[in-house]
């Protein structure tokens, strides 16, 4: 459905997109994950032909995407990172206006506007001006304006930035509902939990390059970490730490003497936690809380790039 091949975008010396390749299939929720400044928004701007790129090619629905590809644009809905609405129009007028940029028929536009208002849960706020809305409601209005014309492809650029948890859940549920209704979704974010929660396929970007891609499970299988064990309130001697390091399937041990936190990373195997607890029992070491965590996308990013997603 969307094909980006070897796309290079430079801002002077800075390479924002470095031979980026993306393939997005119809009907999927595609996640573009990466820290701030990794090139997510630039990639979307190139995809929408809002930015000229230096090299490569982009096709959408099988056709080359150009600034004047208005027929293609008609089938795309955009939800920008910043709230893009008119302060001097009411909620309903805003949705109706942006829907009208795509839908000429007045009756159909009215129907679509009503549907978008219902979808975003803005029924009680339709006559209000945006400045009267809370941050979460504003974000919902922003989304409603982008999807009101019921596009085939919806691009959401970090739609949940600075949103309360309740609104965030509502937004994420809404995105999945859009997908169930047939829209293909491109979702860019630096919140790995969100991407993990809703995306069927993910590309991780760093410095404008795709560093990994696949489903959540595929990405997690790419790294050594299969389990992270965290133990709080534990006092260990250097010999005991070496003993833990020597346990089977353990490949990394971090101990913080200040907070008395022990972090043990293990490769894929069964009974890692039992083996560790057994060792501590034999050593007569007492400890507080114990947590066992499966790898996250942050672990994937950390292991590939050596830095945290939110660095």
């Amino acid at each position: 459905m969307i094909h980006m091949e070897n796309v290079v975008k430079r801002y002077g010396e800075l390479v924002a997109l470095d031979h980026l390749n993306l393939d997005i299939r119809e009907g999927e929720v595609f996640g573009l994950l990466g820290p701030n400044g990794s090139g997510k928004t630039t990639a979307m701007n190139c995809l929408l032909a809002l930015l000229k790129y230096d090299k490569g090619s982009i096709t959408v629905f099988g056709q080359e995407m150009r600034p004047d590809s208005y027929e293609l644009k008609r089938q795309i809905g955009v939800v920008p990172q910043e709230v893009a609405v008119f302060d001097q129009m009411t909620v309903q007028e805003n949705i109706d206006y942006f829907c009208g940029l795509y839908v000429k028929d007045k009756t159909r536009r009215k129907e679509y506007t009503e549907e978008a208002i219902r979808f975003a849960g803005l029924e009680d706020y339709r006559k209000m001006l945006p400045r009267k809305l809370s941050g979460g409601l504003l974000r919902r209005l922003n989304i409603a304006c982008g999807i009101a014309h019921q596009p085939r492809l919806v691009i959401l650029d970090e739609p949940t930035v600075a949103v309360d948890p309740q609104s965030r859940n509502r937004i994420l549920e809404g995105i999945l509902e859009l997908n169930r209704k047939g829209s293909t979704i491109i979702y860019t974010s630096h919140y790995m939990e969100e991407v993990e929660q809703i995306c069927s396929r993910i590309v991780i970007l760093d410095h404008g390059r795709s560093i990994a891609s696949g489903t959540t499970e595929e990405l997690k299988r790419m790294i050594r970490t299969a389990e992270t064990i965290l133990i709080e309130g534990i006092v260990l001697s250097p010999e005991q730490l070496s003993g833990i390091q020597a346990l089977k399937h353990v490949f990394q041990v971090d101990y913080d003497r200040g907070t008395l936190h022990l972090t043990v990373k293990c490769t894929s195997a069964t009974h890692n936690l039992i083996r560790l607890l057994h060792f501590l029992e034999e050593e007569g070491v007492s400890f507080g809380q114990v947590y066992s965590q499966l790898p996250t996308l942050n672990d994937v990013f950390l292991e590939i790039t050596g830095k945290e997603l939110r660095d």
């Binding site: 809002l50 208005y70 027929e71 644009k73 893009a84 609405v85 942006f98 795509y102 304006c145």
Partner: peptide, 14 residues
């Protein structure tokens, strides 16, 4: 406004 312009330029109106 930058965001509004971006949305307008992404639309199907030349």
């Amino acid at each position: 406004k930058k965001a509004v312009q971006r949305r307008m330029l992404s639309s199907s109106v030349p």
